[in-house]
Amino acid sequence: MPEWLSKPEGYAAARDRDTFIDRSVLALLSLISRLRTAGAEPAGRFAVDPFFRVAATLLLVVAVSLAREFASVYVTLTFVTVQLAALPSRALRGTLKFTLITTAFTFIVVLPSAFLGNRYSITMLPAKVFVSVAAVNILSRTARWDALTGALGRLRVPDIFVFLLDITVKYIFMLGEFVLQSLQALGLRSVGRNDRRYGSLSGVAGVLFLKSRQMAEETHWAMECRGFAGKYPRPARLRVGAADILYCAVSLAVLAAFVWIEVRA
């Protein structure tokens, strides 16, 4: 037996902070888990067909951006707050966190105008941002991605757009998992101090690019094999239940109140 094998070596790996790997891994994990759980919430309270919800949310966002009276924004604010109160608690916390941060940011941005005596924009703009961001967040957190793209198809959004959206969401998910695995592999193989972090990270990025090209080709072949030319079959007729009717009635009432206030003012 050679002598060096019997000697204790006493190698202690130099401590190194893997924050860059950890941070990227965490960010990716949260993204993937969000995509995976989006819409996985119990549908009981939000059993309304996504078609109506997408349509109503779009209308709401457009209406809010056109509002000139605080009273009409208040009507939509109440509508959104009632929906918030009915959200499952995870979705509620996520939505509020995101919405409040954007609202606070808007508030800070318009704050100088308050010092110049403009009291209108300091309440109007944050309120508008709150309503629009919250409405879109509620929709995205309680409806599944495929249901949303389906609803867009019904709304006569061009097929190519729906196709792109669909593929993008799916591949963010798939490529995200791929990067996650690469980063984990990198982390496991790194011992001691890594002085070439940027090199290893750009390596991951390069592999990712190659992988995405390969995946795109595979998708193309899969489409050809199945005779899919990017044209979706028209979905079957909508089934309208009591929840849908109630939701539409409330949305229409909100819209009517909104128009009434704006026209009267």
Binding site: E69, F70, A71, S72, Y74, V75, L77, T78, T81, V82, L84, A85, L92, L96, A257, I261, R264, A265
Partner: peptide
């Protein structure tokens, strides 16, 4: 009450809004 809205609808709206925000 809220300017631009008559008293009764404004009051009801505030009731809904207040109740919802309390629950949230």
């Amino acid at each position: 009450t809220i300017s631009g809205l008559p008293e009764i609808p404004g009051y009801i709206l505030s009731a809904i809004f207040g109740a919802a925000i309390t629950i949230v």
